[in-house]
């Protein structure tokens, strides 16, 4: 089983985290799941959803429904979600995210991806990616510990992430919360955020 994170997805997630450094952030992963040998899950892009201090389920639900429609228009699938906790040392999966991700998993018929952001790596700012990847196998297991599961992040993504912090372009990312304040902001396509 191969999991591949594209440059676009990585940068969007990174920008979302950096833009709201003191809040918890959540978003959805979009891509394609293909069977074969090996089976692949390709995370093509990510859609940032929330940066509010306390996440409530009704908003997530509305966002999810709209993303669903967006996916159908663009022939993509919802293949997972990502989340970063507020406190640096806290790397637990919050209950709400747990349920949310399980929901996505059942809609996808399994093999969905839950990306928890490792805040320490985000601060360290070195050449590693910032994720702790989880897959659901009865409970959430770290991907790298499962045999025959490969996790690849496009190298260019990691390189460019330093750039977008330096030149401030991370601030152009828009999530559902910002959209609710100003509906002229396109949180689904995020055209203004140039990768």
């Amino acid at each position: 089983m191969e999991y591949h994170i594209s440059k676009e997805a990585y940068l969007k997630i990174y920008a979302h985290c950096v833009k709201y450094p003191v809040n918890q952030v959540t978003g959805i992963l979009l891509g394609k799941k293909t069977e074969g040998s090996p089976s692949k899950v390709n995370v093509i892009t990510a859609i940032p959803v929330s940066h509010e201090s306390v996440l409530l389920s009704n908003k997530l639900e509305i966002a999810l429904r709209q993303i669903d429609i967006y996916c159908k228009k663009n022939t993509l699938q919802i293949i997972g979600c990502y989340h970063a906790n507020e406190l640096v040392e806290n790397d637990e999966i919050p209950e709400l995210i747990n349920l949310f991700a399980k929901n996505i998993d059942s809609n996808l018929s399994g093999q969905s991806l839950l990306l928890m952001i490792d805040n320490k790596k985000l601060i360290a700012n070195d050449d590693q990616h910032i994720f702790k990847a989880y897959v659901l196998q009865k409970s959430w297991k770290i991907l790298q510990t499962i045999t025959n599961y490969v996790f690849i992040v496009e190298e260019e993504g990691i390189n460019k992430s330093k750039e977008i912090v330096k030149n401030g372009s991370y601030a152009n990312i828009v999530d559902f919360d910002s959209h609710l304040e100003d509906i002229s902001l396109d949180w689904l396509n995020n055209d203004k955020f140039v990768v």
């Binding site: 429904r65 709209q66 429609i69 967006y70 228009k73 959209h179 509906i183 002229s184 396109d186 949180w187 689904l188 396509n189 055209d191």
Partner: peptide, 18 residues
């Protein structure tokens, strides 16, 4: 009405039909 000026208009219109 409010979404008429928004780039997300299409998606939302679909959403409202549900």
């Amino acid at each position: 009405k409010l979404y008429k000026k928004s780039p997300c208009e299409e998606v939302v219109n679909e959403f409202l039909k549900q």
